[in-house]
Amino acid sequence: MSAEAMTLFSPELAARFDALVERYPVRRSALIPMLLYAQDEVGYLSDAVIDEVARRIGITPLDVRNVATYYSMLRFVPAGRYNIQVCTNISCMLRGGYRIFEQFQERLGIGHKGVTADGVFSLEEVECIGACCWAPAIQVNYDFHDELTEEQVDAILDEYRSRSQKAGSR
C-alpha cells in the first residue's frame, strides 16, 4: 500500500471501511456509502480517494467514477466547510424557497455551486430534501433547518461563521 493511502483516511474511517466491505453478500455493495463517508472526511472525491476506494473494493478507478458521477451528493471538487443546500422544489417554492435562496446568494456573493473565497461556505439549489411539511427548508451539511423565514438567514450564517472560527482556532 502506498504511503498516501495509509494516511488518506483516519484510522477510524479505515477500520470502518474494513468492516463495511465484509458485511454484504457482495463487496461492491459497500461502494456508495464508502464514497459518501470518504467525502465527509476528505471533503471531496479526489483522485487519491477514488483510487483507494477502488483498491479496497477490488474494482477499477474508472468503474468507481462511472458510479460516483450518477449520485448528486458526490462531488469531485471541494465544497465549503458548510455546504448550504436550499430546497426550491414545489412545497418549498410555494412557501418562499426561492426568496431564501436569493438571500443566501446576496449575503454570500456566490451563486449555485459557488464557494466563498474564505472556503467557509458553499451554496447549492437542491431538489426535494424530504421536509415538505416544514417548508421552506434547507440543509447545512447534514443539518436540517425547517420553516425558515428571511429574517433567519443572517442568524444561520452567523451561527456557522462562529462555529467555523472556533474550529479554525483549535
Binding site: S29, P33, L36, I57, Y71, S72, E127
Partner: peptide
C-alpha cells in the same frame, strides 16, 4: 444502507442496482 442522492433510486429495480454498488 445510505444512498448518495438520486430520486430514481426510489424505483425498486434502480434501488437494487444502487444497493449492488452500481
Amino acid at each position: 444502507q445510505s444512498g448518495a442522492g438520486a430520486y430514481e433510486v426510489g424505483e425498486e429495480s434502480a434501488l437494487m442496482e444502487s444497493l449492488e454498488g452500481k
